[in-house]
Amino acid sequence: MELTIKYFGMLTEATEIDKESFTTEACSVSQLLKKLQSTYPKLQNVDFKVAVDQQLVTLDYIISNEAEVALLPPFAGG
């Protein structure tokens, strides 16, 4: 399946990109993160939450095809 992955804030310093298309077989958030962390080892050392299609999800959430997955570092609004 095809996913869009977005990175924000300090995470863009770990990945050096802010958006990418990602092809993978069906997987959970934690399985996807393992793959991303092997591509971008610096993601292992930073704190973030995961949103799928603009909603925060837990690690066991099963991602569906064409979803937009966002990795969100700590919020700093206001």
Partner: peptide, 19 residues
């Protein structure tokens, strides 16, 4: 709300703000 803040210091280095 997913807003992120990069604190820029006077010497142009930075750190990431956290609520």
């Amino acid at each position: 709300v997913p807003v992120f803040g990069k604190e820029i210091f006077e010497d142009q280095t930075h750190q990431w703000k956290q609520n």
